[in-house]
Amino acid sequence: MTAKIIHISEGEEAALQAAQAVLLQGHPVAIPTETVYGLAADATNPLAVTRIYETKGRPRFNPLICHMANLAMAETYADFDPVSRRLAERFWPGPLTLILPLKPGSGIHALATAGLDTVGIRVPQGIAATLIGAFGKPLAAPSANTSGKISPTSALHVAEDLGSKLALILDAGAAPVGVESTIVRAAKDRIHLLRPGGISAEELQAATGLPVVRAQSPSPTIEAPGMLASHYAPAAPVRLNADSVKAGEALICFGETKVTGMEQAVLVLNLSPTADLREAAANLFDYLKKADAVAIKGIAVTSISVEGLGEAINDRLVRAAAPRE
């Protein structure tokens, strides 16, 4: 099987109909979101969810985010506390996932939640939300890549990795955010940040007036996707905060950082020459893939600010550089 790629620009209605046909058969479809491309399947169908895990080679103890068409749809599946509702109203549709208690008999299958009594819910932007609304049920949708590897920010990335395992990939061009959603669990007096992402901690605090508390890393328990110590990893070893380059390494830099031995690098990529963190986030996974394709000895990455969106970028790089099990 080789995946068919449908370009959204060539006809959104045809793309939606083709995707719904595959989803109704209980198979996953690769769909574009503003964060990364997702591997989407019916969250209420155990066979469909199983196929997500099988396609990705993903551990079944690692829960999936369930994507909704809008807040009203989300309210039929999960219970919202006042803080979570405020966050949803402020940031949805957008790159924020809320961990919420499941409603009894919600219909979301336990395989999608890894047996937890909570569920991660997000309302994406663009055609993903349109597809969910037309399908009428939530879509479980982790990133459309082999588990633990670099997340895809284009249809080409998906096709190169999972194209032989899928029937359909929807193509809407490059994902504009470029890193996965921020995942939070709200409390009355604080917000627990489980995974940094496309919404910064500063934005969360500004929206609620509550302090943001970071989760322990690596976490002893898995409450949400993206909490494994090793994740988003290229095949080549990754070396962080590099101020020099070794022969045979690819170099990923940021801003105007000066790096000793740059001439030895097999490839030099700059996430953002102007030190724009949004540009860096959008380029991160694509540049990791490009560096991984040519690196002989490894990938050296210079230091990147941890402010704002930089927290999410550094989180992904730390997990990419973590020891492999």
Results as ranks from 00 to 15, higher is better:
residue 13 E to F: 10
residue 14 A to S: 07
residue 16 L to C: 07
residue 20 Q to S: 14
residue 21 A to Q: 15
residue 23 L to F: 12
residue 24 L to C: 13
residue 25 Q to T: 13
residue 25 Q to V: 09
residue 25 Q to A: 15
residue 26 G to V: 12
residue 28 P to E: 09
residue 31 I to L: 15
residue 34 E to C: 09
residue 35 T to D: 02
residue 38 G to I: 03
residue 40 A to D: 01
residue 43 A to V: 11
residue 46 P to T: 03
residue 47 L to N: 13
residue 47 L to I: 14
residue 49 V to C: 04
residue 49 V to G: 04
residue 50 T to Q: 15
residue 52 I to V: 10
residue 53 Y to G: 02
residue 54 E to H: 12
residue 54 E to M: 11
residue 59 P to L: 08
residue 60 R to L: 13
residue 62 N to M: 09
residue 62 N to V: 05
residue 65 I to V: 15
residue 69 A to M: 11
residue 69 A to T: 13
residue 70 N to C: 11
residue 70 N to H: 12
residue 71 L to H: 04
residue 72 A to D: 14
residue 73 M to Q: 15
residue 74 A to H: 06
residue 81 D to S: 08
residue 82 P to R: 04
residue 82 P to L: 08
residue 83 V to G: 09
residue 87 L to T: 05
residue 93 P to N: 09
residue 96 L to T: 09
residue 101 P to N: 01
residue 103 K to Q: 14
residue 109 H to A: 11
residue 110 A to W: 08
residue 112 A to P: 12
residue 113 T to L: 07
residue 113 T to Y: 02
residue 114 A to S: 15
residue 120 G to W: 07
residue 123 V to R: 02
residue 123 V to Y: 07
residue 133 G to H: 08
residue 134 A to V: 06
residue 134 A to I: 09
residue 135 F to D: 05
residue 135 F to H: 04
residue 135 F to A: 06
residue 141 A to G: 11
residue 144 A to C: 00
residue 146 T to K: 07
residue 154 S to H: 01
residue 154 S to E: 07
residue 155 A to L: 10
residue 156 L to D: 14
residue 157 H to R: 08
residue 160 E to V: 05
residue 162 L to S: 01
residue 162 L to C: 04
residue 166 L to S: 05
residue 174 A to Q: 14
residue 178 G to V: 05
residue 180 E to S: 01
residue 183 I to V: 15
residue 188 K to Y: 00
residue 189 D to T: 02
residue 192 H to W: 05
residue 193 L to M: 04
residue 195 R to W: 00
residue 196 P to Y: 06
residue 196 P to R: 06
residue 199 I to G: 04
residue 199 I to T: 06
residue 203 E to F: 01
residue 203 E to Y: 00
residue 208 T to C: 06
residue 219 S to N: 13
residue 221 T to K: 15
residue 225 P to I: 02
residue 228 L to N: 01
residue 235 A to H: 09
residue 242 A to M: 02
residue 242 A to R: 06
residue 243 D to H: 11
residue 244 S to M: 12
residue 245 V to D: 06
residue 247 A to T: 14
residue 247 A to S: 14
residue 248 G to D: 03
residue 248 G to W: 00
residue 249 E to L: 05
residue 254 F to D: 13
residue 256 E to Y: 10
residue 256 E to V: 12
residue 261 G to I: 10
residue 266 V to H: 10
residue 267 L to R: 13
residue 268 V to T: 13
residue 269 L to E: 13
residue 269 L to T: 06
residue 270 N to T: 00
residue 273 P to K: 00
residue 274 T to K: 13
residue 275 A to H: 05
residue 275 A to V: 01
residue 276 D to T: 01
residue 281 A to V: 07
residue 282 A to R: 15
residue 283 N to Y: 03
residue 283 N to W: 03
residue 284 L to H: 10
residue 287 Y to I: 00
residue 288 L to C: 08
residue 292 D to T: 02
residue 293 A to H: 10
residue 298 G to V: 05
residue 300 A to Y: 04
residue 303 S to D: 13
residue 305 S to C: 11
residue 305 S to N: 11
residue 306 V to F: 07
residue 307 E to D: 15
residue 311 E to T: 00
residue 314 N to H: 09
residue 316 R to S: 00
residue 321 A to K: 08
residue 322 A to V: 02
residue 322 A to H: 01
